[in-house]
Simulated scan of single mutants.
Amino acid sequence: MSFARALKPVSSDYEHILIDCRPAIDLVSRSALYAADNLLIVVNPEPDAVDGLNSIQTALEDLAEYMDKVLPIAGIVINKLDGRRNDHAEVIAYLKEYASADGIALLGDPIIQKADISKLTNVGMGFDEHPANPVWSRNLHNNFISILEKVAL
């Protein structure tokens, strides 16, 4: 509940507030879930990360049962995809089945793993501000816009 209290004074100043939590479902993450209007799940296509989906589901069930709050899942975004890895393709196939079975949308295109992404964020630049303006950067920027538009509905 502390996130909800902390956001109350500024919530009217912003149309959208994104809360980025670490992958652990602990008290901090549960507090963020309580404060949220919906949930965007960002998952790396790794087996350990996919195992965390069950923890998220349990946390949402606890939220509904103990706090009387049903938090809708806005969708799942696949992050740090390495197209050269067969295991990533297998995990994406699993995520498609998982999402379809639960009526959850996979949002946007999977986000590829690129060193330039971390370099840009480290210097405080957006993907649309890449000095060379490569195609992948423009596509990534448009992908994020598409994802955020779907989450904001």
Rank of each mutant, 00 (worst) to 15 (best):
I19R: 02
E97H: 10
A99K: 01
L33D: 01
R85K: 12
A24G: 10
G124P: 04
V123F: 06
Y66W: 15
A4G: 00
K119Q: 14
N54E: 12
A115N: 07
L107D: 06
A132T: 08
A64L: 15
F3Y: 15
Q57D: 09
F144T: 07
Y98A: 03
E15T: 05
H141N: 07
G108M: 02
I19A: 02
S100A: 15
I73L: 14
D128C: 06
Y34L: 14
M1Q: 14
G75W: 03
L140Q: 04
S137K: 01
K150G: 01
V42N: 00
K150F: 00
I92H: 01
V42Y: 02
F3M: 14
D116Y: 07
I56T: 08
A115F: 00
L33A: 03
I92N: 04
A99D: 05
A24S: 15
D20Q: 05
E149P: 03
E97F: 06
E15L: 03
K96P: 05
L60D: 09
I117Q: 04
S31H: 12
E97M: 10
Y94Q: 08
V70Q: 14
A101L: 12
D13N: 09
N122M: 04
H141E: 06
K80L: 11
V43W: 05
D128E: 11
S137F: 08
R30E: 14
L60C: 06
E65N: 14
D87M: 09
A105C: 10
A74C: 14
A99L: 02
H88V: 10
L60E: 11
G83D: 15
A59H: 11
V43N: 04
A105F: 05
V123M: 10
G126E: 05
R138C: 12
P45G: 02
L81K: 15
H130I: 07
K80I: 07
G126Q: 07
R30D: 09
I92D: 08
T121A: 07
K69H: 10
A32R: 04
V50C: 11
D116C: 04
S146N: 15
D109N: 13
D37T: 07
A4V: 06
H16P: 00
D116M: 05
P134E: 11
